[in-house]
Structures are given as C-alpha cells and as structure tokens.
Design a protein around this nucleic acid. Sequence first.
DNA 1: ATGTGACTTACAGTCCGTG
DNA 2: CCACGGACTGTAAGTCACA
Lengths: 80, 80
Amino acid sequence: MYILQLAMDSNSDILKRFGDRIRDYRKKNNMSQEELAEKARLHRTYIGMIERAEKNITLINIEKVANALEINLSEIFNDL
Amino acid sequence: MYILQLAMDSNSDILKRFGDRIRDYRKKNNMSQEELAEKARLHRTYIGMIERAEKNITLINIEKVANALEINLSEIFNDL
DNA sequence: ATGTGACTTACAGTCCGTG
DNA sequence: CCACGGACTGTAAGTCACA
C-alpha cells in the first residue's frame, strides 16, 4: 500500500542518508571501500552495504567508521 | 582474560556513554522508561537495556529514541 | 518504575565468489 | 575498484515473568 510504502521509506531514510554521508567523507579522504574497511577493521563488502543502505549499522561500528574517517560522531550526524 | 576485558571495555565505552546520555535526556524530560519506550515504539525493557549499555543499538533505533526525546542525532552525539 | 534471565526470530556482519 | 549474490555465524531485536 501507498501509506505503508511511505512508512517503510521513512524507516530506511536514515540508512540512506547515513550511507551517502559515509560515501562522501570516504571520497573526500580519497579512500577506497577496501581501505576504509581495513582502517575500521570491518569487511570490505560490509562498507559497500552500508553505503548502499542495505544494512542497519550498530553503534559500535558507527564509531569505528567515524574513527576511520577521522571525524567525530556529532559531525557525521550533523544536518542528517 | 585481562586483555580481552580491556578490549571489551573500550568497545562498550561508546555504549555506556550513549546509554548515560539517553538516561540524562530522558530524566531532563521527566519521562519514565515506559513513557520513552511508548513514544519511541520500543519495549520498556529494551530502553532499560540501552541505558545500561547491555545492547549494541542499531541506527534505526537510535533515530527512534532521538525522535522520542525530541533532539536531533547530532546533539545526542555531541562531545560523546 | 526498573532490573534481570531466558527465550525465539530477524538480521548484522563475514567470507567466498562473479561481472 | 565496486555492486551484487549465496551461504554462513553471531548477535541485536523484541517480549515475558518475576524480583
């Protein structure tokens, strides 16, 4: 249904916005997904999934990615 | 083991700080765990577990809690 | 009002690969 | 270098009875 679809979209909105944000920062730092993954100690395919909003990342891994991108958590969520 | 314990502690640091932050904001808003849970559409025991840093919360639930506390994500993570 | 243990189901996260 | 798939393991999600 239309309304249900809207609700589902709004659920994954945050994942999409977060994934785009990660990708932006990664490219700004001239890193490949593999490099980011290694620095964050996560798997390369997982970084791709996060950027494509296919996985609902946990807080501990959010922090790992932020550290790997050398930005603080508050900045990652700024205007998100 | 001791080293493992240290590693786990540093891992769960972020969960502890996040949980404390949530508890602070909840109390500032004069809400019970039950009230917050209802507003965030989560279970009351789950809110308790988050505040006690017993669960590694995912991004979608982080957003639900932030919305229920009427603060934005960036503010929740400010100086965390 | 909250903490806790026990529990099932869903999905986070890894590892192998392909185009 | 990245998107995407299948198969797998571990753990988060979510609920409950009781303290």
